[in-house]
C-alpha cells in the first residue's frame, strides 16, 4: 500500500535545504510569495535538482498544486514521481491500484479547476501509464464537468482523445451523450463537432450511403426547429464537403427558409421610422439558407447568386465586406 493519503506533515524534510528564489526585490511584475509557497517550492526545487522520486516529494507536489494548480513544472515532476514509483512496484495489480489512486487525486483537482490546462494532459499520461486502463471509468467525471460547463474545450478534447485511443467510435454511450446534450441545447457547437468526429472520423469504417442520408435528414430536422443555428448548418455543409456530395440537391431545402425570387430588395431596406421587420420574418428565416443558396447558384445561375448576396447584404450587414467579396468572385 502506498502512502498516498499522507501529507507533508507526515514526512521529515529536515535534511532538505530549500532552494530559494533569487529574483531581486523591485524586479518587474514580481509576485510577493507567501512564506508557505516559498517553502514548498523551495523544497520541490531542491528535490528536482537531485531528481528525488519519493512519497515525501509526492506530498510536496500536492501541497504546491493546492496553492497553484497551474504550475506545469510541478505537474510534470509529479508525473515523473508516479511513473518512477509505479515502475518500482512488483506487480501489475499494485501498479494498477497505485495509478487508480492517482487518477482519483487528479479527478478531485479537475472538478475544482475544470478549465486548467494541465489536468487533462496529466490524466492522459496516467491512462497511458496504467497497466489495465478502463475508459468507462472516465465518463462520470467528464459528464459532470460537461453538464455543468457544456462547451468546456479541454474536457471535450479529452473525451475525443479517449474515443480515439480506445476506439470507442461505435459505442452507444457516445452518440447517446451527444443526443442528450443536443436535446438540451441545440446550439451546443462542441456537441455537434463531437458528433461529426464520431460519424466521419471513425477509424473503423466509413458511413454507408444510407447512413449518410440518415445523418443528413437528422440535421435537416434540427435546422427546421432552429433555422438560424450556425452549428447545424455548418454540420450540414460539413457532410457535403466531407463526402463530396453535390450541394445543389439542397436547393429545395434552403428555399423553405428564404425564397430568393420572391424577395424585393427594396422591401428589406429599412426606411427611417418605418418598421418592416415583419415582412422580413415571413420571407427570410435563416441567413445561412440564403448564403448556401448563393453558393449553390454560384456556378450556373449567377444572377440568382448575386441576388442572394444582395439579400445577405441587407439582412446581415455586419458581413457586408464579405458579401461584396463573394460578389467579386462571381464577376
Amino acid at each position: 500500500m502506498s502512502d498516498a493519503s499522507k501529507t507533508m506533515e507526515d514526512f521529515s524534510y529536515d535534511d532538505v535545504t530549500p532552494m530559494p528564489f533569487n529574483e531581486p526585490k523591485g524586479s518587474l511584475c514580481r509576485i510577493a510569495y507567501s512564506a508557505e509557497y516559498t517553502t514548498v517550492m523551495g523544497i520541490i526545487r531542491a528535490f528536482l535538482s537531485v531528481k528525488e522520486y519519493s512519497e515525501r516529494a509526492l506530498a510536496a507536489t500536492a501541497a504546491a498544486i493546492e496553492l497553484n494548480p497551474a504550475h506545469y513544472t510541478v505537474w510534470s515532476y509529479r508525473y515523473d514521481i508516479i511513473k518512477n514509483i509505479s515502475e518500482s512496484l512488483e506487480s501489475d495489480t499494485k501498479r494498477q491500484q497505485y495509478i487508480d489512486e492517482e487518477l482519483e487525486y487528479n479527478e478531485s483537482v479537475a472538478i475544482n479547476y475544470p478549465k486548467n490546462y494541465q489536468i487533462w494532459n496529466y490524466r492522459e499520461l496516467l491512462i497511458k501509464l496504467h497497466p489495465n486502463p478502463t475508459p468507462k471509468k472516465e465518463f462520470p467525471l467528464l459528464e459532470a464537468i460537461i453538464i455543468e460547463d457544456n462547451k468546456n474545450y479541454h474536457t471535450w478534447a479529452y473525451r475525443t482523445w479517449l474515443v480515439s485511443y480506445f476506439n470507442l467510435f461505435d459505442e452507444e454511450s457516445e452518440i447517446n451523450f451527444v443526443n442528450i446534450l443536443l436535446a438540451k441545447d441545440i446550439r451546443n457547437n462542441s456537441a455537434w463537432n463531437f458528433r461529426f468526429f464520431l460519424k466521419f472520423n471513425n477509424n473503423n469504417r466509413k458511413l454507408t450511403e444510407e447512413e449518410i442520408e440518415k445523418e443528413i435528414s437528422h440535421v435537416k430536422n434540427s435546422i427546421s426547429h432552429a433555422p438560424q443555428n450556425s452549428s447545424s448548418w455548418n454540420y450540414l455543409t460539413g457532410i457535403y464537403d466531407r463526402t463530396g456530395k453535390d450541394i445543389s440537391e439542397l436547393e429545395e431545402f434552403c428555399l423553405e427558409f428564404g425564397s430568393i425570387d420572391d424577395i424585393l430588395i427594396e422591401d428589406l431596406r429599412t426606411n427611417d421610422g418605418e418598421d418592416n421587420s415583419d415582412d422580413v420574418e415571413v420571407i427570410v428565416k435563416s441567413v445561412y439558407a440564403v448564403e448556401l443558396l448563393s453558393n449553390i447558384y454560384a456556378k450556373e445561375k449567377k444572377a440568382k447568386s448575386l441576388k442572394a448576396l444582395e439579400i445577405l447584404t441587407e439582412i446581415d450587414p455586419i458581413r457586408e465586406n464579405y458579401w461584396s467579396y463573394k460578389r467579386s468572385l462571381l464577376a
Binding site: 493519503s5 499522507k6 501529507t7 507536489t61 500536492a62 489512486e101 482519483e104 487525486y105 483537482v109 472538478i111
Partner: peptide
Amino acid sequence: MGGGSTLVPANAFKRGGKEILFKYRWF
C-alpha cells in the same frame, strides 16, 4: 452510461495533501 442519470458523488478525495472538497453537488 446510457440515457438515464449519471451520478458523481459529492465526495472528498485525499491524496498527499489536505482534503480537497468537491465544490460540486450531484449531477
